[in-house]
Amino acid sequence: MAEVTGIKEIIKPENLVYKRTGIMTDTVLSYCPGCGHGTAHRILAELIEEEGLQSKAIGVSPVGCSVLLYNFLDIDWQEAAHGRAPAVATAIKRLLPDRFVFTYQGDGDLAAIGTAETIHACNRGENFLIIFINNGIYGMTGGQMAPTTIPGMKSSTSPFGRDVRMMGNPLKMTDIVATLPGTYYVTRQSVHTPANVKKTKRALRKAIQYQFHNKGTCFVEIVSNCPSGWKMTPVESIRWMEENMLPFYPLGDMKVPDEKTGK
C-alpha cells in the first residue's frame, strides 16, 4: 500500500513539471516513429498556449506529411492546396490584421511547387510566420527527391544519390528569403536534441511575438529527419542528419531585427 501512497504523493499538482498542452487535441498523430513533426507541433502548441493566442490563431496547413495538422492543434485552420499556403495566409492576414497567422510547410510544398508564393509573400513582407520543415525528402508520397535533397543523397527518385549535374542543385530557400527586404526575422533551427528543441522554441517565440511588430515576414526553418523516407532507424537518421544535413544547412539566425531600432 505504501507504493500507492507514493504515487499519490508524486502526482500532486505542486510537483507538476511537464504536462500535455491544452492546444494539442487527443487525435493520434499520423507521423512515423522518430519523425520531427510531432516535436515541432508540440512546441508550436505550447507557444500558442503560453502566448495566449488560441483565440487569435489561424493556421494554414500544407500538402505533405503535415496535411492533417489541422486535426492536431485546437485552433482555427485552413487547408491550402500544395504550395499555396503563403498566398492563402496573405489574404487572411490582410483581411484580419490583428490575428496571429502562420503557415506550416514542408520542403516540397515550400521550396518546389510553392517557390513563387513563398518568395513573393516574403518579398511583400506579409506579416505572418512561415514554419518550414526541411527533411530533404517527400515523406508523404514515399521518399522521393525533394528540392532540398542534398547532393549524393539517395531517394526513390534519385536511387543512386542526387546527381546535381543531372538533377539540379538543392535549393536553400531560407538563405534566399533572408536576402529579401520583406523578411524581418529568418532563422534555421532543429529539434533533434533537447538543447535544439529549447533553441527552436526560443526562436519560434520571438517569431510569434515579432508578428505583432508588423515589420515583415518571419521565417523559421526546422531541419528535421525522416526515418521512413531515408530508410533508417530513428537513431540512425538523427546521426545521419547531424553528419550530412547540418553541414549543408547550418543552424542559426540568418536575419535578426536590430533590437534598438526594431528594423
Binding site: V60, Q78, R84, A87, E117
Partner: peptide
C-alpha cells in the same frame, strides 16, 4: 494561382 488562393484564404 496566387490570386485565387488569396481568394480561398479570404
Amino acid at each position: 494561382l496566387a490570386a485565387i488562393n488569396m481568394v480561398y484564404g479570404g
